[in-house]
Design a protein around this nucleic acid. Sequence first.
DNA 1: ATAGACATTGTAAACGTTTACGCAAAGTGA
DNA 2: TCACTTTGCGTAAACGTTTACAATGTCTAT
Lengths: 326, 326
Amino acid sequence: MTKPTIKDIAAQSGVSIATVSRVLANKSGSYSEKTAAKILKIAKELGYRKNSAAVDLVKKGADVIALIINATPTNFSTQIIDGIQQRASELGQGVIILYAGNRDHALQHQAIITALGRSVSGILLAAIEPDEEDLTLLKESQIPFCFVSLYLGTAAILAVSSDNRDLAYQATQYLIDQGHTRIGLVGIDEYHTGSQRRIGYQEAMTANHLAPATVLPGDYSYEAGVRLLQAVKDQGLTAVLAASDMVAAGILTAAQQHKIRVPADLSIMSIDGTIICQITTPALTSVTQDFYQIGRQSVNKVMGQPALDFVPVKIVERASVVPPAD
Amino acid sequence: MTKPTIKDIAAQSGVSIATVSRVLANKSGSYSEKTAAKILKIAKELGYRKNSAAVDLVKKGADVIALIINATPTNFSTQIIDGIQQRASELGQGVIILYAGNRDHALQHQAIITALGRSVSGILLAAIEPDEEDLTLLKESQIPFCFVSLYLGTAAILAVSSDNRDLAYQATQYLIDQGHTRIGLVGIDEYHTGSQRRIGYQEAMTANHLAPATVLPGDYSYEAGVRLLQAVKDQGLTAVLAASDMVAAGILTAAQQHKIRVPADLSIMSIDGTIICQITTPALTSVTQDFYQIGRQSVNKVMGQPALDFVPVKIVERASVVPPAD
DNA sequence: ATAGACATTGTAAACGTTTACGCAAAGTGA
DNA sequence: TCACTTTGCGTAAACGTTTACAATGTCTAT
């Protein structure tokens, strides 16, 4: 009782495999209703299922978008995935997700290789910082790829993200408008996203004649937030812009352990705006990214449709930012 | 400049495609070092990459495990994925993740079809409640499948999870040991996992001669927790066992809005033990599941290796449970 | 020198589809 | 009636690998 093929269906229904294939592929207009009905019936009886490998082989490529994603300490991924999946299915594309571990280089590379080997119709890289090798691999592959939630700083490489410079500028300006002057940027990485945010932060500070106080690098994780609180305290900051909701949460709980009151003694503004912001006490004021939209736009882009480069952010006020005490 | 195949390599190196294939597949002992070196060099120069479709076709199946996962409101997924990925790669299997949306039936079904069409070597279903149709589809497919973090109540179907009955029993007993008598179970679903937990809860209550007070069904989400607080209050409970960290977080923030002090007025014990438990104030005491291990064991199981059915849980005390006030 | 074992390679079939091409039958317009 | 188009279907090639089998050459032990 082996897996049935179109050959079996052909045999049982007394037609050629070509006809079976045409019916099964819905090439309407090239078969009669009668044979179609017969074939479909037999196919169902046999429990027939198309062999995608065979289809991909002859069609030279799968109608599938590969999404490579790493285990970011932060958890915006489901919204991105939702957006991608939705838009992809509107365009008749499936989605397979390849997991690149936790900034694990080998896994990341492996995932790219896998995607290329499957001749997918597009590759999406979410929150992935590529190295040179990955990049040339992708470029030479002839298959379109697009970075998601990461902007490499050049229009030559497809990408959809928030405008990190602007995002940080807005957030910093918001803090300044509240009356803060000793503001730090905490938990950013040292790569593209981080440096773009750093620039926005610095621009906002100098535009308001404030000395850019402190940038404390990290890796967007909860633990980074916890660890960096000491430095925040030492610098005598009255407000911080946290690189992610997780960093914000880390700073918050660490602050509470140090008897630093939030927001009375320290205001925290978070970047991302996931549900984490509602869970903490106090709830975190954030500059919220539209991850769902980022997802959608990225499949547009990788499929050659018109798409946004930057998806707007918005500030949502919750309870973790107030004017400084002094 | 089309994508190079073994044929191109064969032509350039003056050997047959069979030899190229053998070298590229590392069939050691069936080729000489010299030709291997030559072939590998040319392959690299050409930027050759195997066509997985062709390989899968002739090999009748891919060395890949498909993981079907839904967008659970709770976020234990990355740990499960980590475990799966790790163990899979130890066994020489790749992993592709198929996203089943948010308990979206059509998508769920679609994902199963896709996995079957790709003749993967195993299918893992994480936190998926199957319907009859899905189940027969899987059973008839001849390819092994295993539920992850969900036990269907019969040994006939492969599954790896925590022992939900025992988990709920332990948690309830813990609350009782703290002196609570008016204990509710909040946010569970009405399917397998939920009813197993309900049983454990009830057993613990009756074993301690307490009337099972209240079971408030939900969907494991933050919103469910928020919504159900009113009922918790109305029932005059002094402690709740929340179906997930997200539910617990929802109950907590809603309680704070109602000026109910946690844990002084209401103790909250959470099921899952993800990082969410550390983020809230107070931190959530939880019965913590070992999701990483669940992931690992599930690939063992689906690959026919010896594996645990139930992965032990442990109670970790944080700050959200204290003895009742009165 | 001879037989057998072994190492290395080539030939060709197979995997399950899609699709260009061709052909017969049926329909259409004059 | 004829010429032509359309409809429905079959034949066979193609996609890029793997692998059974056969062929060749080399080595070893007699």
